[in-house]
Write a protein that binds this DNA or RNA. Structure first.
Length: 363
DNA sequence: CGACGTGTAAC
DNA sequence: CCTTTTACACGTCG
């Protein structure tokens, strides 16, 4: 009991990496794009650096929209996302973080939690020194800045890292929690998005301290037992979840079709491509699977899934026939639907071998 | 309870 | 005219 947890968040990671690898665009507004390829600028913004955010450009918006905002603002650099490269650098940085921690949990390509309770012997000054060292190493080795939060659990560490950025360092000790969370709007809580914010608003709850004081029964009626508990705990800054490596639960690939269609062959071709890609990751992870799903997004952007569970296997060749029959069935059952995007997913995963390790047999 | 499909959320 | 990937909770059905 009584942990010290660090959350590290790489600042506008994709955009910063492009600046770091190309001095020509350094200091300019940079927008990283996911081009869908259906027309010149179709697609969405994947990341924007702070210079670009000043123009109102944010991740998630359409590229067309972002270009409109950029118009007349001089040099704004639009680049396609090079995710393989970002992953490579991320892996190096995660190695550094692993080296600085007792336990490390990577949560995404640009984020990780570190448990440093043991190595600091619960010293908050020691924790701050480690955080500063991490920031220096990432700056020296990769020319990148990050925002760091230190707290007694993952929830507080995460919210602390968000508190000041870019290049921030925020320490929230146990006794600071109430003051830190107090007047924040509930939407700032990790896991509280638009729907939950609106539902809480209906109950007259706008801030975290109001949420903390809300009758648990009232929350249960609105959200069900589990989510109500999670919300109430969060409002009090309570989070006992450990920093731990998590095994993958599912692996998926999705893509936008060149044109809207309901032609089986066209759609299935795309599914073959995606399955091919997924195969690499699947083999890299050394997992077997039991469930195969197809993901279908129609012209109105409504997403549906169809899945089938088969006897456990690591043979990727078993994916396609299942996907094909699911797809054919879906099109028969939905004769009016036209598809815009499709995807493939395997889940119910079981780890077959230690990642990156050879089995005894191979020696 | 296991399988399946949807909704919410975060990056 | 709107990307990608993952996680998890919940409702429903047999």
């Amino acid at each position: 009991m009584g942990r010290i947890i660090i959350h590290v968040d790489l600042d506008s990671f994709y955009a910063s990496l492009e600046e770091s690898r190309n001095e020509k665009i350094r200091g300019k507004a940079v927008v990283i794009c996911m081009f869908s390829g259906r027309s010149e600028d179709s697609g969405a913004v994947s990341a924007a650096n702070y210079k670009a955010r000043e123009l109102g450009i944010k991740s998630g918006m359409s590229i067309v929209n972002a270009k409109r905002l950029a118009k007349g603002s001089g040099d704004v650099i639009f680049l396609p996302a090079d995710r393989e490269y970002y992953r490579t650098v991320s892996d190096r940085i995660m190695g550094v973080l692993e080296d600085e921690a007792d336990l490390m949990q990577q949560v995404s390509v640009d984020e990780a939690y570190l448990d440093i309770t043991e190595k600091t012997r619960k010293s908050w000054d020691g924790a701050k020194r480690i955080a500063e060292e991490i920031k220096e190493r990432i700056k020296r080795e990769e020319y990148l800045t990050c925002s760091v939060g230190i707290g007694p659990n993952k929830l507080i560490a995460k919210m602390a890292s968000k508190h000041r950025k870019p290049d921030g360092l925020t320490v929230i000790k146990e006794e600071d929690i109430e003051g830190f969370l107090g007047g924040l709007p509930v939407s700032k809580l990790h896991g509280v998005g638009k729907k939950t914010t609106d539902a809480l608003s209906e109950l007259g709850v706008k801030t975290v301290d109001e949420l903390a004081k809300t009758d648990p029964m009232k929350l249960e009626e609105a959200f069900g037992r589990n989510k109500a508990k999670a919300l109430h705990d969060m409002a009090l800054g309570i989070d006992d979840s450990p920093v731990e490596g998590k095994d993958a639960r599912q692996i998926s690939r999705i893509a936008t079709l060149k044109e809207d269609t309901r032609d089986v062959e066209t759609i299935f071709e795309k599914i073959i491509e995606l399955t091919d890609e997924m195969e690499k990751k699947l083999k890299g992870e050394g997992v077997s699977f039991r469930t195969v799903s197809i993901i279908l997004i129609d012209t109105h952007l409504k997403m549906q899934t169809r899945s089938e569970t088969i006897p456990q296997t690591e043979n990727v060749l078993e994916i396609l026939p299942v996907a094909r029959s699911l797809l054919e069935r879906f099109l028969e059952e939905n004769p009016e639907k036209v598809l815009r995007r499709v995807g493939i997913r395997v889940s119910n995963l079981t780890r077959e071998k230690e990642k990156g390790q050879r089995t005894l047999f191979e020696f």
